[in-house]
């Protein structure tokens, strides 16, 4: 019998150790219960990588964190905007902790990285239509 989960986990763990996307030392802490990170890369690696992982590869345990790599669900920008602003399923809403600019920035980052090449760029105004604030 093979311990599939452990094997996969160990392989992933080893991979991450060998190839960190952002070194731990670059990660910082925010003050005043609002994320202070500004760039898409910093926001991704402070928040999104908690679940979607550092290379956006996702993870699987009892449930799944979907990979964001080459993810066709990102084609319509409204979808990731909605997910970040409002949350759905187990995913939390980040409206309380991110302003519309930050949501636009991180959505653009994910849609332009990890094998995603969506050319359209969203703005805070696009986010506002969904965040309703």
């Amino acid at each position: 019998m093979i311990d599939n989960f452990t094997l996969i986990s160990v392989a992933l763990g080893a991979g991450l150790l060998a190839m960190p996307a952002v070194a731990d030392s670059q990660l910082t802490f925010s003050v005043d219960r609002h994320f202070n990170e500004k760039s898409g890369e910093d926001l991704y690696h402070a928040i999104c990588q908690d679940c979607h992982m550092s290379q956006a590869q996702g993870a699987q345990g009892a449930g799944t964190y979907p990979a964001l790599t080459e993810n066709p669900k990102l084609a319509a920008a409204a979808y990731p905007i909605f997910m970040v602003a409002n949350g759905l399923g187990g995913m939390p809403s980040f409206k309380a902790y991110l302003d519309d600019d930050q949501i636009a920035t991180v959505v653009n980052y994910v849609r332009g990285n990890f094998g995603n090449h969506y050319p359209d760029v969203v703005s805070a105004l696009d986010v506002k239509e969904i965040s309703h604030r």
């Binding site: 990660l27 219960r33 690696h45 402070a46 990588q49």
Partner: peptide, 19 residues
């Protein structure tokens, strides 16, 4: 809890302990 909990989670376990 809150933003700092997300930021801790983003770190490796060793870094969480170190911090």
């Amino acid at each position: 809890w809150g933003p700092n909990a997300y930021e801790f989670t983003a770190m490796s376990p060793e870094e969480r302990v170190r911090k």
